[in-house]
């Protein structure tokens, strides 16, 4: 362990490009995510378990529309899955990175700081794409879900998905600074997520909620994400089940984009690279 090579003479060699580092971060984050095997299994299993439960408890077709329970819950559970990986898992994960010194170590590297966030968001995208693919496969195979055939529906799916994952991820990054420690993160971050699922049309159709709850839920992104996904999987026939009789896709885009921008601002202004006990 003695013969260390002499440091090369300092040249003006340029630092690696930020894009290269961001992609390296994405590769590492994704690898780490999939190596935590129990977390992967449960993340993938959660929406499937809910789908099985709801499809067993409720059955049949919504009156006059031909919309099945499987359609309704598939759309809602995709929204909840996006929020789960983007907001909940990411928020808790980053709080853990802060607690155990991962963030502090990264902050000491000649790494452009946005590279860390981009790496996290890409890894969440990969994870969520797989989660949704498995959910859709189960819904099609066992619950007779018919996937839309029009290109326009899939285009809608794509933008709602990307916008939804991005907004959820930046909010997850922002919320990670809230818990006082890594240990309390799961409790702090799970409460708003669970409540949102109840009021945003994931578990309970939004038409069955009192007005004030609907109004409150309409502030948050999950309600709009689910609405966007319903437009994809329920089709025109299901629009009658919406409160306004329409999927309001323009408004979906607007609200999700607003949360994305607001979340980015929060990340930039409030993100902490060190734990609270670390000053």
């Amino acid at each position: 362990m003695t013969a260390t090579p002499a440091p090369a003479p300092r040249t003006a060699a340029p630092l690696p490009s930020p894009i290269k580092i961001a992609l390296a971060r994405a590769a590492v984050e994704t690898k780490v995510l999939f190596r935590e095997r129990d977390a992967v299994v449960f993340t993938f299993a959660l929406p499937i378990v809910f789908l099985v439960l709801f499809a067993s408890i409720f059955s049949g077709v919504a009156e006059g529309t031909g919309v099945t329970v499987a359609q309704l819950y598939t759309a809602g559970l995709i929204g909840s899955g996006v929020m789960g990986t983007g907001f909940q898992n990411l928020g808790i994960g980053i709080a853990g990175d802060r607690e155990d010194g991962t963030l502090k170590r990264l902050a000491g590297l000649p790494m452009p700081r946005p590279a860390y966030f981009i790496g996290k968001i890409i890894s969440v995208l990969v994870m969520t794409v797989l989660q949704v693919a498995i959910l859709l496969a189960i819904a099609v195979l066992f619950y007779g879900l018919e996937l839309p055939s029009e290109v326009s529906a899939w285009a809608t799916f794509a933008w709602v998905f990307v916008l939804g994952v991005s907004a959820a991820a930046v909010l997850g990054i922002a919320v990670s600074s809230l818990p006082r420690s890594g240990k309390s993160a799961a409790a702090v971050i799970s409460l708003p997520f669970v409540v949102l699922q109840f009021v945003s049309g994931v578990f309970i159709p939004i038409t069955e909620l009192p007005d004030w709850l609907v109004n409150a839920a309409s502030i948050f992104p999950l309600k709009w994400m689910c609405q966007g996904f319903r437009s994809v999987f329920l089709g025109d026939a299901g629009a009658a089940l919406e409160l306004t009789g329409s999927y309001e896709l323009g408004r979906v885009a607007l609200v999700l984009a607003a949360w994305l921008i607001g979340g980015l601002v929060l990340c930039v202004t409030t993100f902490r690279w060190k734990g609270r006990r670390d000053g």
Binding site: L15, K31, R35, G101
Partner: peptide, 20 residues
């Protein structure tokens, strides 16, 4: 970044439980 690249840091406590 240029300055950081000339400095090496070994922190007092580092217990990141990396799966790498």
């Amino acid at each position: 970044r240029e300055w950081r690249s000339r400095i090496g840091i070994v922190l007092q406590t580092a217990d990141d439980r990396a799966e790498l």
